[in-house]
Amino acid sequence: MRGTRAQRLQGMLVAALLTVAASASAEDRVELFAAASMTDAIDRMVARFEASHDVEVVPVYAASSTLARQIANGAPAEVYISANVEWMDWLGEQGVALTERTDLVHNRLALVAPADSQQKPFAPGDDETIAARLGEDARLAVGDPAHVPAGIYARQALQSLGEWETLAPRLARAANVRAALALVERGEAPLGVVYSTDARASDTVRQLGLFPSSSHASITYPVAVVGERPSDAALTLRRWLESDDAMAIFRAEGFGT
């Protein structure tokens, strides 16, 4: 009997220790959902942050729309960075608690071509049209304008420049901006509309020119902590994203701060 009781007490102690360990582990692990265009910058930031904090950061990248829908459906995101304010607003409208929200950085919209193409520098809105640069049969790679922020900005810009009706049937619609970039990198599309930071991150595309800032809404990336009871680790990461170290990385990757 004594042996059985001792074994039970030992088992209870082990279970309690495992529960505490699991809670501590969960407290020191943060899931960061970020727009696909932030992949390179966030990867660098995670390495820098983890080097000085006893916290594991797990980044998840996709289109802002995809991430927002996943969070609304219960995905365990603790910090969310969107490539536009609309998807952050939408998430709040779904009843998801968002705190410590602020506008983090800005970006520009760029026209790109494969690095080895013969395309000459070209700023959309100049005398020549994008359609003329595409030729008769080729497609323009973009994030899907139905929901991907980069595609939404592209649609606004093309409408402003009077090219939307001509180019809408000729779009190669991608699931996110990095997928649109990949179409140009592989030569499957001779031109693409991506962020200037995406063009900068790739060795196999060349930026032809920037769209006028006035042709589309401001490309703003809001950040917020997700959930009614955020962990200390999530709050620490969220606040660190506004630090001088973080901003230096954002600027090095081409974002406007």
Rank of each mutant, 00 (worst) to 15 (best):
F122P: 01
A123R: 12
A123C: 14
P124H: 00
G125L: 08
D126Q: 12
D126G: 11
D127A: 13
E128L: 15
T129Q: 07
T129F: 03
T129W: 02
A131F: 05
A131M: 04
A132P: 00
A132M: 07
R133P: 00
L134P: 04
G135K: 05
G135A: 07
G135D: 02
E136S: 14
D137M: 04
R139F: 05
L140N: 00
L140H: 01
V142M: 04
V142H: 01
G143V: 09
G143N: 11
G143S: 15
P145T: 07
A146M: 10
A146D: 12
H147V: 11
H147A: 13
I152D: 01
I152Y: 06
A154D: 05
A154Y: 01
R155E: 14
R155W: 00
R155Q: 11
Q159V: 11
Q159A: 13
Q159P: 06
Q159E: 15
Q159C: 09
L161K: 05
G162C: 13
G162I: 08
E163Y: 04
W164R: 07
T166G: 02
T166R: 06
T166V: 10
P169S: 03
L171V: 12
L171G: 12
R173Y: 06
A174P: 04
A174R: 15
N176F: 07
N176Q: 10
V177G: 15
R178K: 06
A180M: 15
A180H: 11
A180S: 08
L181E: 10
V184H: 01
V184W: 05
V184Y: 08
E185P: 12
E185W: 12
R186H: 08
R186G: 14
R186K: 14
R186A: 10
G187I: 15
E188V: 00
A189H: 01
A189S: 10
A189T: 14
P190N: 04
P190G: 06
P190Q: 08
P190H: 10
L191T: 09
L191H: 07
G192S: 11
Y195V: 02
Y195H: 15
Y195T: 10
Y195G: 14
